[in-house]
Amino acid sequence: MPTHAPATGDLLVILRHAPHGSSWLREGLDAALVAAAFGQAVTLLFQGDGVLSLVEGQGPGPLGQKGTAATLDMLAMYDIESLFYDQVALAGFGFAPQQLQLPATGVEAGAIAPLIAGHRLVLTF
């Protein structure tokens, strides 16, 4: 069960898509980075297939796309360190929290509404 207080901030970016197969994740992360560069306190929530974005060891693949692992590594430089993921979704894919590329906090479904309520602006990708 989550024991932390719900995170708050200016902007919550919800990422629902896996890192490969579409540009959703990349364009969602771009929006988060720009907002952070504009001085907004940004929180990320990885939900559904989006939790796969956090799994470590992913390369760009043969399609010539840049991949998003490098962008995730840059988040800390932009002071985006408030990262949450849907822990049921992660477990559903057979991954453990130890396999994540970045330190992130697992949340249960019940903690997502307070997370959304704690941010004035929410962007969904």
């Binding site: 902007l11 929006a31 720009v34 504009f38 602006l121 929410v122 962007l123 969904t124």
Partner: peptide
């Protein structure tokens, strides 16, 4: 325009609604 305008818009309005 740039994504910065989206951030500005989010700050300027009472509600920003996403259609995905």
């Amino acid at each position: 325009t740039g994504l910065g305008q989206l951030v500005d818009l989010g700050q300027a309005v009472d509600r920003l609604v996403t259609f995905a």
